[in-house]
Design a protein around this nucleic acid. Structure first.
Lengths: 178, 178
DNA sequence: TTATGTTTATACACACTGTATAATCGATCT
DNA sequence: AGATCGATTATACAGTGTGTATAAACATAA
C-alpha cells in the first residue's frame, strides 16, 4: 500500500512477514503465484459470513439490497488494495480465460436472487434473464463501486445508489420491498 | 499484445519502431512516460470523429444510443490492449488523484446528454442528476463493456444492452425515441 | 537416531531500467 | 563551404529485482 505496486517486491514481503526471501519462494513458487495467492486470499475474505444474511431475506428485493451492501462493505475495507489487485489481474495474459472467474461468486449470487425476483415479481422476462444478470454484474462490480465512491459518497450511499439502479434495470423501479 | 504486459520492454518497443532504445528514452523520458503517452494516444484515438454524430441527434435518447455505440466501437477495436492499459493505470499510485480523469470525456458527454434528456423528458429529478450521471458512467464504462462482451455478445448487442439499461436507469424505460 | 520437511545464507545468472558519454548524422543558417 | 543544433546511435555501466542452485542449519516426528 505505502510503496505502490512497484514497491511490492518479494524481498519486502518476506521482510514484513519476518521471514527470508527464500522461504517465500519455497512456499509460493514465485511472485506470480504469490500474487495469485493474495488475490484468492482477499477474495476468500470477501465471502463474508454476512453474505448468508442476504439470502435469508424473505423478500428477494431485500436480499438484493443486502447482497449489494455486503460487497460494498468488503470493497470499502481495502479499496485501493483491491483495485490494484484487480488491475494486476487485467495485465495477465491468462485473463481471457480465467478473468471473470474471480467474480463467479457474485454472478452466482445474482443469478439466485434474480431467479427469486422473477418468481415473485414476474420480471425480468425469460429471454432477458441472462442479459439482466450480466448488466447487474457490471453495475455492481468493484469498478462501478470505485467510480461511484468518488464524488464524496459514503459506502452506504453507494450501496443504496447501486441498489436503486439495479431495481430500475430489473424493472421493479419504484415500489420498495421492505 | 503477443508477449503480454511483462514482454512490453523498452527494448522491444524500440525494435518494433525500428529505432534504438536510447531514442525512446530521449523522446519519452522513461517507461512510465511512454505508457502515459500510449494511454493518451489511445484515448485521443477514441474521441472519434463519429462522436459528433451523437450530439447532432435531435432526440437526446438517440444521442445517448449513438454515444454508447461509438464508445463500444472504440473499445471493440482493441479490447485487450485497452484493458491492459487501464489495468496498468489502476496500479499507479497517482490513480487516486488522476485516475478517472481519463474518463472525463465520457463524463462530459453524458452530462450534456442527460441535461438534454432532462429538458425534454423531465427526468431525472434535479436532486438525482449527479447520481444518475455517475451510475451511467459506471454502467457504460469499458469495464462494463468487457463484462458484457463475454457470453458471446457482439459489439452491437452490447451497445444495445447498455443503452436499454441506461434508459431504465434514467427512467425512460419503455418508450423509444426513434 | 534417523528421516523428512522447512528455513536460511550465500552465490549466481539473467533481464530490464535508467543514466552517462561521446560519436555520428542531417538539416538549417550564415 | 563551414558552423551549428537537434536527433540518433553505440557503448558502457550502475542498480535493482527475479529466479535458481546449493548446502548448511533447524525442527519435528517416527
Amino acid at each position: 500500500m505505502e510503496e505502490g505496486f512497484d514497491g511490492f517486491t518479494v524481498e519486502k514481503v518476506a521482510a514484513r512477514a519476518g521471514v527470508s526471501r527464500m522461504t517465500v519462494y519455497y512456499q509460493f513458487g514465485g511472485k506470480q503465484d504469490l500474487l495469485n495467492a493474495l488475490f484468492d486470499h482477499v477474495a476468500a475474505r470477501g465471502r463474508i459470513d454476512r453474505l448468508g444474511e442476504a439470502f435469508r431475506q424473505p423478500d428477494p428485493l431485500d436480499a438484493l439490497a443486502v447482497f449489494i451492501g455486503v460487497f460494498c462493505g468488503f470493497w470499502a475495507s481495502d479499496r485501493v488494495g483491491i483495485r490494484r489487485l484487480r488491475g494486476w489481474g487485467y495485465l495477465r495474459s491468462e485473463f481471457e480465460s480465467t478473468g471473470h472467474e474471480r467474480d463467479a461468486w457474485r454472478r452466482q449470487g445474482l443469478e439466485m436472487i434474480v431467479g427469486r425476483i422473477r418468481e415473485r415479481y414476474g420480471v425480468p422476462a425469460g429471454d432477458a434473464v441472462q442479459d439482466v444478470i450480466d448488466v447487474l454484474l457490471a453495475l455492481t462490480s468493484f469498478e462501478s463501486y470505485d467510480v461511484l465512491v468518488r464524488g464524496g459518497r459514503e459506502e452506504a450511499e453507494v450501496a443504496a445508489l447501486m441498489t436503486e439502479a439495479a431495481r430500475a434495470v430489473l424493472g421493479v423501479g419504484g415500489e420498495a420491498g421492505g
